[in-house]
């Protein structure tokens, strides 16, 4: 059903608003903030200018960022306060919406991505701080045609119900099994203590993690913990 994904390749419109500048005249504090944001919007409505490769150029509160997501250099113009999570979900074209916005405060782990192969909560990382880093999301760990071992184990063990926490768990566990290819049940619990599930999939998630570890060990008897898993 991958072909049923919404086609979001059209650029979002910034509806023309010619009266806005006039309207802003004489506005006090709000006006100052507005002017900055207005600047940003003017830029947004221009043709996207690619920023210098691998960096962020900051201009009036807006930044052109180049994000290296799943091996692709992706550009977006965001406000500097925009989180990596929101930049991927709301600004990249097409969107990267595997990581989910759930708690927005670094508690639940649904937005987990790998930043230079290390799991982080992308709701706590600013997009401008994620430039020049390798960002791997759940989409980069495996594809519908070629799931990674953790994804395969999640399918087989029914380690998901509604699936909203799943991208976070898959990402956390994929990274953890590289660090510790042969974990105990308690170590798996410890490794994903920063991920919440509400449907109650935990027991099957643990089974999936342990089963994936076995598969990885079987497939790569001499190469535990190599880069083979992350196709980025």
């Amino acid at each position: 059903m991958a072909d049923e994904r919404d086609d979001n390749s059209n650029k979002p419109e910034a509806p023309p608003d010619p009266g806005r500048r006039k309207f802003l005249k004489g506005v006090g504090v709000v006006g100052a903030g507005a002017a900055i944001a207005d600047q940003l919007l003017l830029h947004a409505s221009e043709q996207a200018k690619p920023a210098a490769a691998g960096g962020a150029s900051v201009e009036q509160g807006a930044a052109d960022v180049v994000l290296n997501v799943n091996g692709q250099k992706r550009t977006a113009r965001v406000e500097t306060r925009t989180t990596l999570l929101n930049a991927m979900r709301n600004h990249l074209e097409p969107q990267v919406s595997g990581p989910k916005l759930v708690c927005d405060q670094g508690t639940c782990g649904a937005c987990t991505v790998l930043l230079d192969d290390k799991p982080v909560y992308s709701c706590l990382v600013l997009a401008v701080d994620a430039t020049n880093k390798k960002i791997t999301t759940v989409e980069g760990l495996g594809t519908l045609g070629k799931l990674n071992e953790v994804q395969t184990a999640f399918v087989e063990k029914d380690a998901l119900m509604c699936g909203f926490c799943t991208p976070g768990f898959v990402t956390t566990i994929s990274a953890y099994l590289k660090k510790n290819p042969n974990p105990s049940l308690d170590q798996v619990k410890e490794a994903c203590k920063g991920n919440f599930c509400r449907c109650g999939t935990y027991p099957h998630v643990f089974e999936a993690a342990l089963s994936a570890a076995k598969t990885i060990a079987m497939n790569n008897p001499l190469a535990l913990g190599t880069e083979s898993e992350v196709r980025s």
């Binding site: 989409e139 519908l144 799931l147 399918v155 991208p167």
Partner: peptide, 8 residues
Amino acid sequence: APLKVTGA
């Protein structure tokens, strides 16, 4: 499940 484990 494949859609959900890949973020698709």
